[in-house]
Design a protein around this nucleic acid. Structure first.
Length: 472
DNA sequence: ATGTTC
């Protein structure tokens, strides 16, 4: 894979057949994937072959190997030019994302509150493989309402306040969700998981605002130095996973009929403007709403704990996905086009003034929420005008070692002791899960954010550090 | 990520 260094934070993979556009990798030399162990740059080139792709196949600084598309990949296709949608460009955890909540507390309050808060959260946050959820749905019809209404439905049912919806991407629910495209098996898997963290890299953290890099923007987001905040990172659980599985399989069948050939079966896709493409987008939107309702329910659970233990509210700063495809309008060669923008392990980053932002965030830009690896910093960023890559940036630290490799480097008990010794309270679901998430298995999130900012993808607003982690 | 291999 030949990379041309265009600038300190931008590398190009030149177009060659059957690529339709070049690849562009936003990285430093140090952050470039290790070609010996990670084939994500080949995946960037593979994505560049997709019908209708415009601009380039982009990789964010946290790029790593994924299913078909790299994680940390952005690809936009032109709907009117036969552009495709691909489930692999969204990922198995549809609308996995992050929500940040601001407390009334200062980090100086935490020593006396921390144990009670963490024990309360430990008991209130269902997590781990399978088992448990905040919300026990009355019947399948109620799941249908979740799939259509997302956070909006959860708030209608008393799990939150109307202001929450102003601070959600899409104001709490993606339009055009089509529960009829969600299989019976996906429904079964989703029925009992609304309001659950899951496992892997998902977490609920109590954090402190450790540094403010842009005072006015942080203030517009409702953040100040020393403030205690809560970050929730989770997705659409078994429901999203099943939808991805179902629709990849269906598209493998329909691709020949659409005359589409791809260099990797995992790039299965269909034209956005086709029955199969619309079916996937309808099911994907349903899963996106499920993921947002999931984060809304976990918010509700965390609010009860913070109210009871600390007398504090939790104000939503923002809720944003990093695994989603969206139909958006962007200028391409000076002409506005309707594009299907795939962001997989990449975060939408709307610039100041964007009409999709709520009025009180319009001047500041969209809060971009970047979860770090366990025990390390997380970041709040914002979008910038004129950025490349269709208003997208990184999504996290980016894994560099597999789960099995991670488990060889450290034991869960040992990791917990190390974190506790550094003043970070740990409430895990399993020792194994903890070990798999050792920060040694990830890139340095600060280096990722440095490059994202240096490449002009976003701007830094605040740095957050963990005080306590409830781990899936 | 994931009823961690329908």
């Amino acid at each position: 894979m030949e990379l041309v260094e265009e600038s300190p934070f931008r590398f190009r993979i030149d177009r060659r057949d059957p690529m339709r556009v070049p690849g562009v990798v936003f990285a430093s030399r140090a952050l470039l994937p290790d070609v010996g162990s990670d084939r994500s740059l080949e995946q960037v080139a593979n994505v560049a072959t997709l019908p209708g792709i415009v601009g380039a196949s982009y990789a964010m600084p946290d790029v790593h190997w994924g299913y078909g598309f790299p994680i940390g990949g952005v690809a936009a296709t032109d709907v009117a030019a036969g552009g495709v949608v691909s489930p692999g460009g969204v990922g198995f955890d549809i609308s996995c994302g992050v929500r940040l909540l601001a407390t009334d507390l200062d980090r100086a309050d935490l020593p006396r509150l921390r144990d009670a808060l963490m024990d309360g959260l430990d008991a209130a946050v269902p997590r781990g493989m399978g088992r448990g959820a905040v919300w026990h749905l009355a019947d399948p019809a109620e799941l249908d309402a979740v799939l259509r209404g997302g956070s909006r439905y959860a708030v209608e049912r008393g799990h939150g306040v109307p202001r929450d919806l102003d601070r959600c991407e899409d104001f709490g629910a993606v339009a055009d969700a089509d529960p009829a495209q969600v299989s019976e098996r996906a429904v079964q898997r989703g029925q009992g998981q609304v309001g659950s963290l899951g496992s892997g890299n998902h977490f609920l953290e109590v954090q402190a605002v450790d540094a403010v890099h842009d005072e006015p923007v942080a203030a517009a987001f409702g953040l100040r130095a020393g403030q205690v905040v809560v970050m929730i990172h989770c997705g659409s659980r078994g429901l999203g996973h099943q939808i991805c599985t179902d629709h990849v399989r269906a598209m493998e069948q329909t691709m020949p009929r659409h005359g589409i050939e791809v260099p990797d079966r995992q790039l299965a896709c269909a034209p956005v403007d086709s029955a199969q493409g619309r079916a996937y987008l309808g099911a994907m939107a349903a899963a996106a709403n499920y993921a947002r309702a999931n984060r809304q329910l976990l918010t509700s659970a965390a609010r009860r704990v913070f109210r009871r233990v600390a007398g504090s509210g939790l104000d939503l700063v923002y809720d944003i996905s990093h695994n989603l495809a969206k139909i958006e309008t962007h200028g391409v060669d000076g002409v506005d086009r309707r594009l299907c923008v795939h962001r997989k392990g990449a975060t939408r980053a709307l610039p100041p003034g964007h009409p999709d932002l709520p009025a009180d965030l319009r001047a500041a830009g969209q809060p971009v929420l970047i979860p770090g690896s366990m025990g390390t910093a997380s970041y709040v960023l914002t979008g910038v005008a004129g950025a490349p890559a269709f208003a997208s940036t990184c999504h996290g630290a980016g894994r560099v070692r597999s789960r099995s490799q991670a488990m060889k480097t450290v034991r869960g008990q040992e990791l917990r002791r190390e974190l506790e010794a550094r003043g970070i309270a740990v409430r895990g679901a399993s020792w194994r899960g903890l070990a798999e998430e050792t920060p040694e298995a990830y890139k340095d999130v600060t280096a990722v954010v440095d490059v994202a900012e240096g490449a002009g993808l976003c701007r830094r607003v605040a740095r957050l550090v963990p005080l306590g982690v409830v781990k899936g």
